[in-house]
């Protein structure tokens, strides 16, 4: 699984990183973004809804920073 390190990046940079990384992920595969920006927990699910991808859920990276995982659907 590709994991994007967006620690320290303000919104909307983590979402832009997601969008740029998506073409490199096969349909059905997972893509994760690690981001401490508090907007990410709202904006990753919203991005999935707007772009027709699946929001799988949130957990935390080893250092406790939130990690959001999505699945490419199209």
């Amino acid at each position: 699984m590709i994991e994007l390190d967006c620690r320290g990046l303000p919104c909307p940079r983590p979402i832009i990183a997601l969008a740029k990384a998506l073409p490199g992920v096969a349909v059905g595969e997972l893509l994760a973004v690690v981001a401490d920006d508090p907007a990410a927990r709202h904006d990753v699910p919203a991005w999935c809804r707007l772009r027709g991808q699946e929001y799988v859920g949130a957990d935390t990276a080893d250092d406790g920073v939130p990690r959001h995982t999505i699945r490419r659907l199209s």
């Binding site: 303000p10 919104c11 979402i15 920006d37 907007a39 709202h42 904006d43 699910p45 919203a46 809804r49």
Partner: peptide, 22 residues
């Protein structure tokens, strides 16, 4: 959006609606 607010938190209104906050 959070980057226009005094805090780093985005609007609680947009967040509660599930809307894009940026």
């Amino acid at each position: 959006s959070a980057c226009t607010a005094s805090s780093l938190e985005p609007s609680h209104v947009l967040a509660a609606m599930g809307a894009l906050t940026h």
